Amino acid sequence: MGISDIAEIAKMAHENGAVLSVDNTFASPFNQRPLELGADFVVDALTKFINGHGDAQGGAILSNDLETMDRIRYEAQVNVGSVISPFNAWQIFRGAVTFPLRMERINQSSLEIAQWLEQRKHVTFVSYPGLESHPYHDLAKRQMKGFGGVISFGVEADDKTVEKFCAHLKVVTFAVSLGHDESLIFPQPSYDERIHLYPPQFQKGFIRFSVGLEDPQDIIQDLDQAFHAVGL
């Protein structure tokens, strides 16, 4: 959940003859528009928030450089054959109709849930750009309309207990991916490498949580009962 200063990086890139491409999947175009901040290209996974239903696969490359876009389109579609299936395209167009409404709800719910998690005794950290405690909160406020639907947090427990916590959830689905209509949660295993790469609070009990469209109070109650179920 790190935040990069897109405008500043774009300036540095252009001063040195480089182009800047931004993967905007986690923020989504509803919350952040990198082209307006100086980026040359934006990559979005249409599979996630834009489709919003977890039932289609697709991706998009966007740019104001129409000449380069024509080249990308030709080489990707003609030379490589990267053409989305008609059914997936239809599903994504269908999902995109409700995209703004879904993101408004997800933004609101995610902030409420992140604030609640911050108050939990056995939660070691909560990383969400909408929280004032986030080190890049001010930057996020400058370049984002909303703060998205992904929260990272840590639990004071070993990997087995964290997996049990996720398995005890009833409203939230224990599964990978993000940006769906349903909330998804998945623990990140405590690999040995993490000890050398991250501060102590990130070394175990690390969880990625994608907030869906359920009532935020239902999600909070579900998290609460799962914490109690594993003695946290």
Rank of each mutant, 00 (worst) to 15 (best):
F186S: 13
I6V: 14
L66G: 06
G130F: 07
L139Y: 00
A229Q: 13
L178Y: 13
A76N: 07
L66F: 13
N107K: 01
E104C: 02
S85N: 11
K160F: 13
G95Y: 09
D23W: 10
H53A: 09
T98N: 13
G81F: 13
G130P: 09
T124R: 13
K11N: 05
R94F: 00
E36F: 11
V230T: 07
S152F: 10
E132F: 09
F186M: 13
V97E: 00
S183L: 03
A60C: 13
L184S: 10
G17K: 09
S127H: 05
N31G: 04
P200M: 10
V150F: 00
S152G: 04
D222T: 12
G205T: 06
I195D: 12
I207G: 04
Q143M: 01
G205W: 02
G54I: 05
L232V: 12
G38N: 06
R94H: 12
T47F: 04
F147K: 01
P216N: 04
A7T: 13
T47E: 09
Q203P: 11
N64R: 08
I9K: 07
P199E: 14
K164V: 11
S4E: 08
F49K: 03
C166E: 03
E214R: 10
A114R: 07
I151M: 05
K121R: 15
Q201F: 05
D65N: 15
D65E: 10
F93C: 12
G81N: 05
R142Q: 15
A114W: 11
V97D: 00
L169M: 15
F153C: 05
F49D: 10
L20T: 11
Y74T: 12
T124P: 01
G59P: 01
V43N: 03
Q119F: 01
V171R: 03
H228M: 00
Q119E: 13
A39Y: 05
Q77F: 00
T47A: 09
H14Y: 11
K164Q: 15
H134R: 06
I72F: 15
Q203N: 14
